[in-house]
Design a protein around this nucleic acid. Structure first.
Lengths: 241, 241
DNA sequence: CGTTAATTTGAAAATTTTCAACGTGCGTGG
DNA sequence: CCACGCACGTTGAAAATTTTCAAATTAACG
């Protein structure tokens, strides 16, 4: 069985793409005249909705960066092979988030973007952005805001004891989902144990044990990849956004 | 004894600010007419060279972001207090690197920037950038490149066994120094053991032990905070930049 | 020099990894 | 239809790493 078939099998109920309104790319997107998808107007030639198969890549490290992408449905992981040869999951990206921003400067992507499950995303060609941004002064400012958001220094997911890494990850994911109008209480963990391990810098057995522990302690409920937060999310976190 | 006095004491030989030419901010800086420092022309009112005392902050998390900064001399750490209450060193910044880019979007800084030792930096006011970028189309593009560089997803410093974290950190630091025309073979570790521990997500004793081990193994030579790379840096790293 | 902070070192405790085995779900082929 | 294989996940126990707690040592400063 192929990896992509496996991923397909574990898919949960499809809820459809999130609203453009709650997408980080929305402002830029609108200014590019790509709002067609929501208004139902004729689709412009400026960008396109794209469906990505489970396990397939949106882009690969080192290849020319021709587009930026916004996740509309499903989840995407960004990964790099470290100097030591193991696969580091840099981040996972939920609906509404934008990928490929590093292409502006370097001209190439610096990591692989792999679809976890079936993904629907918007693709915005970089050349087009360049052209438009010269003409439309607002677009330039919107792009700066978008890039600035991505440039925000973040505390890495792999910090402290593994139990905490797992809870912090779940809490963070839940929060991001909620922010986009999705269910942050119960959701499908898009990642396998191995992928989670690669994100949290631990062995998959360690991750599995910690997840099971949280399950036994009734902090979360887990069945396959479906997580329900029970006693998690109550504690307020001092987040500087 | 104050923290800043301590820091002063461990300062190595001062080599002077790096050349503007090798600064990430150079392009933006020039376009803003702030090249005065290098040409010796009359200083513009657009920005300013600033000297920061050891332990003092360039900016604080949560405060309004009025400027971006370029490190010209010395090193700066960016830190955040995590939800768990401990201090995470997000990164250290060597001469030529730019800080505060997250302010574009949010309007506030998202971390503290603390000078390690005496620091000289360039300060570029954000409002000025905004104004100019509307008029000068090149500046807009230069800013995008700068932000894009900062938005590049990076493999976190705290990955794998601690020994590897230390060597990777040293190698990375050496490479960055070399890139800016500084000595990447022998240099002053700007960080204390505790700060290094906060960066590499380990206890300071663990860091100390690993450093001593590398010293015993003749991989590095260390005397106080002065490091010399001996058997490090020979191995080529598959870096995607 | 005496004082204090920073660093080093030791030894036991805790966490994490490793290696190995076992269980489960789901297609495929008999 | 059902057994088989395969990928994924769980679990156990020993080994390795890291943390913790404590003490000793070094370095900087007044």
């Amino acid at each position: 069985m192929t990896n992509s078939k496996r991923r397909l099998a574990m898919e949960g109920a499809t809820t459809g793409p999130i609203a453009c309104r709650s997408c980080d790319l929305n402002e830029v997107c609108r200014l590019c005249g790509l709002i067609a998808l929501e208004t139902g107007a004729t689709r412009q030639s400026t960008g396109a909705l794209r469906s990505v198969e489970p396990g397939a890549s949106l882009f690969r490290a080192g290849t020319p960066a021709n587009s930026i992408y916004a996740v509309r449905q499903g989840m995407v992981k960004t990964v790099r092979v470290t100097a030591e040869g193991d696969e580091a999951v840099l981040d996972i990206h939920t609906p509404g988030e934008v990928l490929g921003l590093e292409g502006f400067g370097a001209g190439t992507y610096s990591c692989d973007a792999i679809a976890l499950g079936r993904v629907v995303c918007c693709e915005l060609p970089l050349p087009m952005l360049g052209e438009q941004s010269i003409r439309v002064r607002q677009l330039s400012a919107a792009l700066l805001r978008l890039l600035s958001l991505a440039a925000k220094p973040r505390v890495p997911a792999a910090r402290g004891p593994v139990r905490q890494r797992v809870t912090t990850f779940l809490l963070d994911l839940a929060q991001r989902l909620t922010q986009r109008g999705l269910d942050g209480h119960q959701f499908s963990l898009g990642l396998s144990r191995q992928e989670l391990a690669n994100l949290l810098d631990a062995r998959l057995e360690t991750i599995s044990r910690q997840i099971q522990r949280l399950h036994r302690e009734r902090v979360i409920h887990i069945k396959g990849n479906l997580v329900t937060l029970l006693a998690l999310g109550s504690k307020p976190s001092a987040d500087l956004t």
